[in-house]
């Protein structure tokens, strides 16, 4: 992905208070492209892709939805809470659509570790390979995601 005008517009929308309260960049001083490239490289080292991570997040969220706002057990050993708020949020990348305000919290009961992500985060990972800047309270460290959600390389 090149550092295009699209990236520049996205970068501006990612500042605090434009789309979300704290923005998407945290204290990261790297360019948007550098953030994306570094995370993609890490995922590739694990034999995975951003799309595969997003698919796993989506699957767990969909299973967790059955709890209708309460924790739901999801195989193999996750407790999943899906909470939604009325309304939509824009993706900071221009030309994308509106994303519902849904938050998913996953507790891996075997390791005791917890991770939370919003539907916007799933979209950002799936469509833009963007896990957000370091220091952003909504950053999802790819390694942590892979570990807590136990995402395995597809043997095929």
């Amino acid at each position: 992905m090149k550092n295009t005008p699209q990236m520049k517009m996205a970068y501006e929308s990612m500042k605090p208070g434009i789309i979300t309260l704290d923005g998407f960049l945290g204290s990261d001083s790297r360019s948007l492209m550098d953030i994306i490239v570094a995370d993609e490289a890490e995922i590739a080292r694990r034999g995975l892709t951003s799309a595969e991570l997003a698919q796993n997040m989506r699957r767990i969220r969909d299973e967790g939805r059955k709890g209708e706002g309460l924790f739901e057990f999801v195989q193999p050993h996750f407790d999943v809470l899906v909470e939604s708020v009325r309304g939509v949020l824009s993706c900071p990348f221009p030309g994308c659509g509106a994303i519902k305000k849904v938050n998913t919290t996953v507790v891996n009961k075997q390791t005791g570790k917890t991770i939370s992500f919003s539907d916007l985060a799933i979209h950002l990972i799936e469509e833009h390979s963007f896990f957000q800047g370091r220091g952003s309270s909504f950053r999802l460290d790819p390694c942590e995601l892979i570990e807590i959600l136990e995402i395995k390389e597809d043997p095929h």
Binding site: Q6, F93, P94, C96, G97, A98, I99, H123, E127
Partner: peptide, 19 residues
């Protein structure tokens, strides 16, 4: 949302040109 996502790639490039 699905249709939005499909068209978004092309839309993005063109919208930048428009901007």
């Amino acid at each position: 949302i699905t249709s939005v996502l499909i068209v978004s790639g092309i839309a993005t490039v063109l919208s930048i040109l428009i901007v």
